[in-house]
């Protein structure tokens, strides 16, 4: 045995390369990234409330602004990301909310399916009250 202790554990640096190491990490980053659009859309909603409180003229200008192709594109993107975020989130619900019936757990599809169902019903209800039908 040598007298000296030769230990020198090597610590590997963490770089952002991990995002591309496996599709799962990329999917995760897209899911997290989608929040930015949802957040931006929420900010816009706050602005809309501000305009609404300033009177019909300001509100009208705001509605007019929404017709710009850039804003329409933004809405399409935000909707897509929101849908993706919700979709991934509902797919994960069986992990967070397992339901045990006797000795068995309800299948993942049932729990996720119930969430998707509730989502659809609520969306339809909102559309209904918004007068879409």
């Amino acid at each position: 045995m040598a007298e000296q202790v030769g230990r020198r554990p090597h610590v590997r640096p963490i770089t952002s390369e991990w995002i591309f190491r496996h599709p799962r990490y990329l999917r995760y980053m897209v899911r997290e990234f989608s929040c930015l659009f949802i957040g931006a859309w929420t900010l816009m909603l706050v602005c809309a409330l501000g305009r609404l409180s300033e009177g019909p003229e300001a509100w009208g200008r705001f509605l007019e602004g929404l017709k710009s192709p850039w804003v329409v594109a933004f809405h399409v993107l935000a909707l897509a990301f929101a849908a993706y975020h919700s979709f991934t989130w509902f797919q994960l619900t069986p992990k967070a909310l397992p339901v045990q019936v006797g000795e068995k757990f309800l299948p993942d599809d049932v729990i996720a399916g119930a969430h998707f169902g509730a989502w659809a019903v609520l969306s339809l209800a909102i559309l209904f009250f918004a007068g879409a039908f």
């Binding site: 994960l92 069986p94 992990k95 967070a96 909310l97 397992p98």
Partner: peptide, 12 residues
């Protein structure tokens, strides 16, 4: 084992 499930359940 599904540790992710355990973590989310503890969060809730």
């Amino acid at each position: 084992v599904d540790p992710a499930a355990a973590i989310q359940q503890v969060k809730i």
